[in-house]
Write a protein that binds this DNA or RNA. Structure first.
Lengths: 131, 131
DNA sequence: CAAGTGTACTATGACATATAATACACATAA
DNA sequence: TTATGTGTATTATATGTCATAGTACACTTG
């Protein structure tokens, strides 16, 4: 199973699809030019509506992560160009601030946060390939 | 003005109230036992509905950040006990993972993220007081 | 042609958000 | 006591998002 969709999560289904595909790309599990399941195929596997998958693919294409070609299919983008918009940068910064505050109230220590951050970057930098 | 509410933000109004009050507490701007504006007063200042403020206060009390006393008012909690629920911990960890992935796609470097993290913890640890 | 693909559109239901308008219970001061 | 300010609860309405369902169209490939 390519993705792991949880219908009971508070995170919207299309958002889960977006997040997980982006993660698989970042980890190198999905490589550039690789073909993704079709809208109908993925929706059948994940037991969700085709429109929901379509919405996720549309947003992923808008972000430059994938490319959809009419009649052919959907593929991982070959060349990924980070936009580096100041607004995006500020958004991430604010999310990080809120995460620090929530960590403070949840009793998560500073060192724990740094440790997790190191781990995540190791996973990405590792360029894993499940071939 | 105690808070800075943006009606045009995608973040719900009551969520903005929650986040900002938690931040003010973490930064030490708001101290334990300090009295908060009444529901009606804050809603008048922020130009939002009293029900929206009430919803935010209710959630903040559920999280143990504030305490509401019928007929008297709402106050910052004296003793804050972090719950340290495994679910909360996992939630924060997942949010951090997604933040790393989004940083990857936004072109935000690892070092930048670490730097921001240091800054935020400095603000909290600083125990600033605007007296 | 047929089959598989992405895409677009309408409709519906469930839910969250926000406002509005009341009403009630409690605490405090006059 | 009364008056005022406080938190709390309820109902109603409007709006938007999420998800599903159903249908249709255009494109690519065999």
């Amino acid at each position: 199973m390519l993705l792991n969709i949880d219908p009971k999560s508070v995170t919207p289904l299309y958002e889960q699809v977006i997040q997980q595909i982006k993660e698989l790309c970042a980890r190198g599990v999905l490589s550039p030019n690789e073909k993704l399941p079709s809208v109908r195929e993925l929706s059948a596997q994940m037991l969700i509506n085709p429109n929901t998958v379509s919405k996720a693919y549309r947003e992923l294409e808008r972000q430059g992560v994938i490319v959809s070609i009419h009649g052919r299919g959907t593929f991982i983008s070959e060349d990924f160009i980070s936009e580096q918009t100041p607004a995006q940068r500020e958004k991430i910064k604010n999310e990080l601030k809120q995460l620090v505050i929530d960590s403070y109230y949840a009793g998560v220590q500073k060192e724990t946060l740094f440790s997790w951050l190191e781990d995540f970057y190791e996973e990405i930098g590792g360029e894993d390939d499940e071939s």
